[in-house]
Design a binder for these strands. Sequence first.
DNA 1: GATGAATGAGTGTTCATTCAT
DNA 2: TATGAATGAACACTCATTCAT
Lengths: 188, 188, 188, 188
Amino acid sequence: MPIAEKPMRADAIRNRAKIVDAAYEQIASHGVDVGMDEIATAAGVAVGTLYRHFPTKTDLVAAIVEHYVDAAATDAEASLARVQTGGSRAADELVEYIRRVGDSSADHVAVKSTARSLGVEPHPDTSAAARVEAALAGLVVQGQADGDIRPEITVDDLFLLMTTAPVNQAVEVRERWLQLVLPGITTH
Amino acid sequence: MPIAEKPMRADAIRNRAKIVDAAYEQIASHGVDVGMDEIATAAGVAVGTLYRHFPTKTDLVAAIVEHYVDAAATDAEASLARVQTGGSRAADELVEYIRRVGDSSADHVAVKSTARSLGVEPHPDTSAAARVEAALAGLVVQGQADGDIRPEITVDDLFLLMTTAPVNQAVEVRERWLQLVLPGITTH
Amino acid sequence: MPIAEKPMRADAIRNRAKIVDAAYEQIASHGVDVGMDEIATAAGVAVGTLYRHFPTKTDLVAAIVEHYVDAAATDAEASLARVQTGGSRAADELVEYIRRVGDSSADHVAVKSTARSLGVEPHPDTSAAARVEAALAGLVVQGQADGDIRPEITVDDLFLLMTTAPVNQAVEVRERWLQLVLPGITTH
Amino acid sequence: MPIAEKPMRADAIRNRAKIVDAAYEQIASHGVDVGMDEIATAAGVAVGTLYRHFPTKTDLVAAIVEHYVDAAATDAEASLARVQTGGSRAADELVEYIRRVGDSSADHVAVKSTARSLGVEPHPDTSAAARVEAALAGLVVQGQADGDIRPEITVDDLFLLMTTAPVNQAVEVRERWLQLVLPGITTH
DNA sequence: GATGAATGAGTGTTCATTCAT
DNA sequence: TATGAATGAACACTCATTCAT
């Protein structure tokens, strides 16, 4: 039963979003070591405001990761939906999904390493993470029912592979990695 | 025409070794951002000494990486030797080698990311790196001749996988990763 | 079109002044090599504050020099004013001015050499420097019209002498130097 | 009555000379802040050797200054000799001497400021300084007897002017300075 | 609530000097 | 005695965080 939180003021919400976006952008393009001032400037607010929303740099990064996971969750759910409506095959969606996750991280080099370097848990117990898990589970089960995915594969296996994907490398490298890794997942 | 380098003094050699060891240890356990002072203290020398041996933090990290690659090279050559003397099967040695590399890095969390974060080339054109490459090439060729390794596999593929191995995870996780990845390399 | 600069906060202005004063004092009495920390302490602020106002030691010294030149400009203009209102003779004012500049620098040994050693231009194209030049030019012209100043003397000549004055010596020495140098400027 | 000092070994003397030369060169061209290591390297010895000869950087600089004063002394004595043999007029020699001192320092920018910045007395009580003084005294007296030099001028006056000469400026500037300063010394 | 000035511990690095070889 | 490796205090500068306005 959630504690009733006073709703944020409209401009505070707007600021929060601006900050997360700017921080994402800055950290992605200049690495974890961008200063808080730089992030604040990029977000068009003062440092103080930034600290009002995120008491710690770590908190800010955690928010970014959550943001990122959230997008991934929405993506995964869309994949599952396409399968469930008969629009496509589960295994194909799974492969495409892994590829897309790698691609999107690739544009934003440092986010993952950032998260780790600041001790942010890779899989925070967010609802977003849970949503990814649920959607992928759906795809795996269906893929196995189709006989396309190896029966012993679990969602954790997929997480393991995705968290070790060579995100900050050229497309060809990422594609080659996918080809190397696929036989361990699929049945053919 | 050999370059006439004056041999280092005995104590200087000892210090250099102490420094590399301590730096390895410190960076591995506390991340790249350990201070040079901390490293020096851990090595039992003064900062100045550290800087006499490595004019820059980057130089120090490069030396550590080289040290690490060197060990990996010796290991790979031993594997190849065992195969060439008929002592064991190339594919088996390859798998074991990958596992060992993961194990050894595992104790020392951050070294690889460290190297990258400081702009140290992952594969500096060291003789050590060349040695690893040569030995692994030998294993791959033999494994393919044996029909154990997929014909399209190259040494670069192995590097790709090894550099994305989940080094900083528990044994079981690393083992699971190996099982997921193996089908992409071997023929069975 | 005036550049819209947000006015500094009152306390920031106060701090800036405190810093310039303290830096002047410290550098003057202990030489250029006083640490920034020492200057900060003397100013009663933390180093960070010092760096917020002057991003570089060189910037700080430049500010000090400007401060100093500014005072000299005001002084020179006062001299010229006295002459123009008929209150005194141009040549006398000139001599007194040179003496005063020597005196004021004398308390603060190293400022000039400091400026030079940090690569700060001796005559930055500040309005202050221009003001000194204009006022001295006025005095020189009038002194020549009076027949007191040698006709070939220029403002640059005065600068040359003033920048070579023995600022860090005892009064008597400085006075003797003035007597040695005067015949080259005046007609008697 | 000097204490009998054990004569230096031949190679020690050679080293001392090499060091002073190298130090002169280095400090002149790179400023006071050249490291002792750099000086030692330039002199072809190890730092330890340098420190055996000069226990302190200040001592080394003092030695350089003495070296410089020594050359100036020889020069001054030659001037005096030319006057005494009737070869030239004292006042002319004096002016030329001042010009030469400025010139020679000019090649070696930082030496004087160096000396001062390290707290080396400008007129160490060396025999060399005494020789300069004696020779200049001879020139002054003769110049005054000739009616060319103002009667109130002393050797100290000359020192005062020479130590304030704009040594590190272009020839034209130095020449202009000389013209400005001459009327204070001569009778015409 | 937002601002941005102030804080101060910490960083990598230098260099005069000492001392074991 | 000469060597050059070791020392360590000092330096200019940074940046996450706090707090007066």
